[in-house]
Design a protein around this nucleic acid. Structure first.
Lengths: 246, 246
DNA sequence: CGATATATTGATTCGCATCAAATTTAGTGG
DNA sequence: CCACTAAATTTGATGCGAATCAATATATCG
């Protein structure tokens, strides 16, 4: 059980090469997450877990034991575990942290499902707490992650409470785009891993509405959309939808 | 500068007599907040700040320096500082913590206004961090507070994303009722400190709709409502609105 | 290749927003 | 304390945006 062995864990550090550049990025979703790396440096080896598309990372009935740092892939979290009839609480990609819903509870409150084949590091929360006691940066990082999640949900409250359908979907697309870009993927062309229904659930609309607005954006020349494939043609135009008056 | 002097700070401990009973209460809003007491025990004296009705505790332009534990009174937090044209993010009462929106930033992101004459303990965040390094319970408490806020906002996402106007208002009333009860006030009779407009902003409705639904609840015999005064007559009936089918 | 999810598109309904006016309450200065 | 003014609430009439219902088309998977 060597501390810095190769194999499954050998590539942990590589994952976090750009962690400093991310530091400054405040808005939306805990991109943080060198927490897995920190735990690693603290002498704890996060376990790698592979998930096939459709596989659950956890469900509400599961005991809360770990936080998860996404290595690659794409997941959704939602209230309830019935496929389709649930309220989506977030979509998550690499370097984001999952499992926060279990903090302070015995069991998870949400479920997390892989929307494409994914890999996550499972970090024992008990271990993380222990490391946190001696490494203040871990504590601090942990807090940053929580604060980012609060900021994200506050933004969602704003979106759900006061934006129109068009504005919601525009916000959603722009947010996705930015997050892909931050990860070195194209911000203007990407594949939607989730269904219209899941998008709708997340931003408080029905799937038909989501579909209609996609075609409306298409007709306005803002995006190109063919099922899961999205290409953002006029980002400025999309952003303009968010501020109707000037 | 005696550690446990009387006067403004003399009554800090009294405030937290029931802190253990609160421990177990998980849902909604960080009722936590013996954090002020903990800071006090850690040798730091939170400053008491009095606010007249209508006074701002902080605005987005203010530098983030402190967290605030409400001693008494009633506050609202919102995005933007223009009175009336803002999105309300929460209503807060005694023993809840304000100012979390400033964490990780130089300035506050929200504003906090007193909706009745209020008193809060201002806890220097720098001090709190310092104490936290030596007193693990403070760190832990801090984390609990953040986790509660996440839970609250997730619940709000659910409410804003999928509930009808009636369900939203019923949820709102029940939540208020429970929080008043927890504080030893009547859970069935209370005064609304906020306007219809502010309620609407919080739960994603217009003031007219809030007003209409109040009278609808009244007509159904669920509540008695006369402007700011609310009396919950049929709690079971109110709760029944939340689960239409069984 | 057939069977099952997922998307698109159309027709219609309904809930809430909007616009507008009347009523009540709170706040202010004489 | 009262008259006056501004703010908040209630209530009604109307319109719009998104939900719902329904049918077809397209993709995905065994």
């Amino acid at each position: 059980m060597e501390k810095f062995g190769a194999g499954v864990y050998g590539d942990v550090p590589e994952l976090f090469q750009d962690r400093n550049s991310v530091q400054s990025q405040v808005h939306q979703q805990h991109v943080a997450s060198d927490i897995a790396y920190m735990a690693f440096e603290g002498g704890y080896k996060p376990a790698l877990r592979r998930l096939d598309r459709g596989a659950f990372l956890y469900r509400p009935s599961d005991a809360f034991k770990c936080l998860y740092s996404i290595r690659c892939g794409f997941l959704k979290t939602s209230f309830g575990d019935v496929e389709g009839h649930d309220q989506v609480t977030g979509f998550h990609m690499s370097r984001e942290i999952l499992g926060l819903d279990g903090l302070g509870h015995q069991h998870h409150k949400h479920s997390a499902v892989a929307l494409e084949d994914s890999e996550v590091y499972a970090i024992s929360y008990a271990q993380l707490e222990k490391i946190g006691r001696s490494v203040p940066q871990v504590q601090q990082r942990m807090q940053e992650i929580l604060v980012c999640e609060i900021a994200r949900t506050h933004d969602m409250m704003l979106l759900l409470g006061s934006l129109h359908a068009q504005e919601r979907l525009a916000t959603f697309l722009i947010n996705l785009s930015e997050r892909f870009m931050l990860r070195g993927y194209s911000g203007s062309e990407f594949i939607l891993r989730m269904t219209r229904q899941e998008i709708g659930s997340y931003i408080g609309l029905k799937l038909e509405t989501v579909s209609r607005i996609f075609t409306r954006f298409h007709d306005k020349g803002l995006i190109d959309v063919r099922q899961k494939y999205i290409s953002i043609i006029d980002l400025r135009g999309l952003k303009h939808i968010l501020k109707p008056l000037h």
